[in-house]
């Protein structure tokens, strides 16, 4: 088998290559990729973004959604370049504004599954205002924040989730700003499904993304990832495999975390993985909009 390293086919089918259909039917991950887009992706070798993309595709496959009913909206940054690779309705917007664009799209098409894909800086720095308001409204958008604690696309500046003391190209003396606990932020703002996992525990991500899409309201999945090209190099965290191993070592399941004593919980520095919050009472925003139009059209009180 070793010598049969097959020439991967170009996705735009041409005869000398292996046509996609016969080789890939076994892998769910590949079904939703775009036929007329050049591969491989632009991301660095080993980047967690591609892993999240695979997880998102599997989640959509498991939900049995048709490609037409899915819309992906992204901002600017490495994560923002994800939607173009998939055969859905894809909207690559401006830095930080994915959720604001997605709000208009969801209201226009409440029947569609609208999924926003953002990086940590994209969602929490420039996009922070839209993040908390989309959660406050509980509008039916699934937001996936790929948290690699750095601005990767622009070369390694610190972001709202870069840990204190760590190096970045704009924190040569070590970052002095505390991080956003984005899951708690989303919960406090009103999100009705919040879960966190890492790109190492990708099958957990599959599960949480699937649940988040199925949830009728504002859902957040924090996918903790890494950037070995900028953040890893600046802080000597090593290669992609080494940073992947750190994700495994430095994370703990919610169940295990809850068994810790209060003191050890307080001192915990590991990433807590799990479904952190679910609220099934709150009604989804576009449903409230529809009620309002029905009330207005029925001559209800202005």
């Amino acid at each position: 088998m070793a010598e049969h390293i097959l020439d991967a086919h170009e996705l735009d089918v041409d005869e000398i290559r292996i046509p996609r259909e016969n080789w890939f039917e076994s892998s769910e991950t590949l079904q939703k990729l775009r036929k007329n887009k050049k591969f491989p992706t632009i991301w660095c070798a080993g980047c967690g973004n591609g892993i999240v993309m695979g997880s998102l595709i599997r989640a959509i496959e498991h939900l049995g959604l048709s490609n037409d009913e899915v819309a992906l909206v992204s901002g600017i940054g490495c994560a923002g370049r994800m939607p173009v690779y998939m055969d859905f309705n894809t909207l690559h917007t401006n830095h930080g504004r994915a959720l604001a664009f997605a709000t208009g799209l969801k209201i226009a098409r409440p029947d569609m599954k609208v999924i926003a894909i953002m990086g940590d800086g994209d969602a929490l720095a420039i996009g922070g205002n839209h993040f908390i308001h989309a959660a406050r409204r509980n509008i039916g958008i699934t937001s996936i924040v790929i948290n690699n604690a750095i601005y990767g696309m622009t070369g390694g500046q610190y972001s709202p989730t870069t840990p204190i003391g760590k190096q970045a190209t704009t924190a040569p003396y070590g970052n002095i700003e505390p991080s956003f606990p984005l899951c708690e932020l989303a919960i406090a703002a009103g999100a009705t499904y919040v879960a966190r996992s890492t790109v190492y525990h990708v099958l957990e991500l599959d599960k949480y993304i699937e649940a988040a899409i199925r949830k009728d309201g504002f859902s957040l999945v924090e996918a903790v990832s890494y950037c070995h090209t900028t953040y890893g190099r600046l802080n000597k965290f090593g290669t992609a495999p080494e940073m992947m191993r750190d994700l495994k070592k430095n994370s703990i399941s919610k169940a295990a975390y809850e068994k810790l004593s209060a003191k050890r919980q307080a001192g915990n520095s590991k990433i807590v993985r799990g479904v952190l919050h679910v609220n099934d009472e709150r009604e989804e925003f576009t449903k409230l909009c529809r009620k309002l139009t029905e009330q207005a059209q029925g001559g209800g009180r202005q």
């Binding site: 917007t93 226009a108 839209h130």
Partner: peptide, 17 residues
Amino acid sequence: MEDEIASMAAIIGASVG
């Protein structure tokens, strides 16, 4: 919306919709 940036973004999103 929460500000005018979001308002402009939302009308583009709705138009695309």
